[in-house]
């Protein structure tokens, strides 16, 4: 266990706890607060994965723009009535919980069974018995993944920009498509929310 491992464990625990709080607290303002707080450990994990630019963008867009919008709307409409309402029928909640748990278990199975750390083209399902016997994600990976390079240069703005705007194989079209989408969304939001145009 080195520094990054400790960081990952702490951030993961924090993120999970805050996410659980977000979906479980009654008050929408508290939920917004815990969600904002959840974005920070996730951004820290991005940072540890040496995606520096994305970590900052995560804080800037999610915490700084999207959640500000949420907070603003919540405070503006101030839905106090919600706190008195009792939650949905217990059997439905149980079904949802079962669904979520099943999804998680399926993903866990997939992650632990297939040797992701190897070259994915040649990855074959590991013998199921072995993965079960040795128990858990750790043992199923034959060789530990090469640790992410933490020199701060990998996910920097330069690399992302090069990939994004490369003349031949870049994502220029997709970029433009997304920008048109955002423009449409902005205009649409104004049209929807404004009382009189």
């Amino acid at each position: 266990m080195d520094f990054l491992d400790v960081l990952f464990l702490g951030c993961a625990a924090l993120a999970v706890v805050l996410a659980v709080l977000t979906v479980s607290v009654r008050n929408a303002v508290t939920a917004a607060f815990t969600l904002v707080a959840m974005f920070f450990p996730v951004a820290a994990i991005f940072l540890a994965l040496s995606a520096t630019f994305l970590a900052v963008i995560q804080v800037l867009v999610y915490a700084g723009a999207i959640m500000v919008l949420f907070t603003f709307v919540i405070m503006m409409i101030n839905p106090r009535r919600e706190e008195a309402v009792e939650p949905k029928e217990p059997d439905f909640r149980l079904a949802a919980a079962v669904f979520a748990a099943l999804f998680f278990l399926a993903t866990t199975h997939a992650v632990t069974t297939y040797a992701l750390s190897d070259d994915y083209e040649t990855a074959a399902p590991a013998p199921a018995g072995e993965a079960g016997a040795s128990g858990g994600a750790k043992a199923a990976a034959p060789a530990p993944a090469p640790a992410a390079k933490v020199d701060g240069k990998w996910g920097g703005p330069k690399e992302i920009g090069e990939a994004l705007f490369n003349r031949d194989q870049g994502f220029t079209f997709q970029f433009e498509a997304v920008s048109v989408l955002i423009l449409v969304a902005a205009v649409g939001a104004v049209v929807l929310a404004k009382r009189r145009l």
Partner: peptide, 14 residues
Amino acid sequence: HQVFTLENTLLLAA
């Protein structure tokens, strides 16, 4: 063990 692996990050995401 090394905790910060691809598998564990995926599990967190799941």
